[in-house]
């Protein structure tokens, strides 16, 4: 499944400043590449800039210097709308909190990004969504609203949502940060399976050493600098 020379993400000389409360260099000259199918963890102490880096890579934060390429598309300098469309198609998110929309059923939550993409009919999207929920073992919860589910189930629905458009990269910000050991293991297992069996590329910010050690590659940040790239 893995093709070694297939680069999905390339960032060069990323520099980012925070201006409030005082001007402060949050990221300093970060450059690295990610191969397709890699399961990568971003680690570092609190304030090391690991989350900041993830949000730059996610295209949601556009206030940086340097360049970012995903899937051979240069994303630096694109308009916000172009970036929205790009995220919709190419990036799936899993956050520490599930961030499911409380008024909608789990199924609808999973369907929304695909409906937004608009490449398939609602029927097909619904079929896909069931598929993803089944893959994550929460298909039986499909028609419930998010807040009636347990934390682990919610996070699995959120992963299903991240997967719905078959994204190039899944980005996780402490995806297991709010889960107990059992659920963390389940989520890790799902990520592992996705990379191994489906060639899915995953970047996850974590402070869970155990989690990080089991990924393919660790990128460690300290005070905004790249420490190790573990390769």
């Amino acid at each position: 499944m893995k093709e070694e020379n297939d680069i999905v993400l390339r960032c060069s000389s990323i520099v980012k400043y925070f201006t409030t409360p005082v001007k402060f260099k949050a990221l300093n000259n970060i450059s690295f590449t990610i191969q397709r199918g890699e399961f990568l963890s971003l680690i570092g102490k609190s304030g090391s800039g690991k989350s900041t880096l993830l949000y730059v890579l996610s295209t949601m934060d556009t206030d940086y210097e340097g360049t970012l390429e995903i899937n051979n598309t240069l994303l630096t300098g694109k308009t916000l709308n172009q970036l929205s469309d790009f995220r919709n198609e190419h990036i799936g998110f899993v956050f520490q909190f599930h961030f499911l929309l409380p008024e909608f059923s789990c199924l609808k939550n999973v369907m929304l990004p695909a409906l937004k993409l608009g490449k398939k009919s609602e029927k097909e999207v619904e079929h896909d969504a069931y598929e993803k929920l089944r893959l994550l073992g929460v298909a039986d919860q499909a028609l419930k609203t998010a807040n009636t589910l347990s934390g682990g189930q919610q996070q699995r629905v959120a992963i299903a949502r991240a997967l719905i458009n078959n994204p190039t990269i899944i980005m996780g910000d402490e995806p297991t940060g709010n889960l107990d050991k059992t659920n963390s293991d389940i989520v890790f297992g799902i990520f592992r399976e996705l990379t191994a069996d489906y060639g899915q590329t995953i970047i996850a910010v974590t402070h869970d050493q155990d989690f990080a050690q089991r990924t393919d590659r660790i990128i460690e940040l300290s005070d905004g600098e790249l420490l190790t790239s573990n390769r």
Binding site: S58, M60, L80, N81, S84, D85, F86, R87, N88, E89, G92, F93, F95, F99, L100, L101, P102, L112, P113, K116, L117, R161, N165
Partner: peptide
């Protein structure tokens, strides 16, 4: 706020 943020993260534009 949070819902809006997640909609935007998953690809809904400001216009949407």
């Amino acid at each position: 706020m949070r819902d809006i943020a997640i909609l935007k993260a998953t690809g809904f534009s400001g216009g949407d």
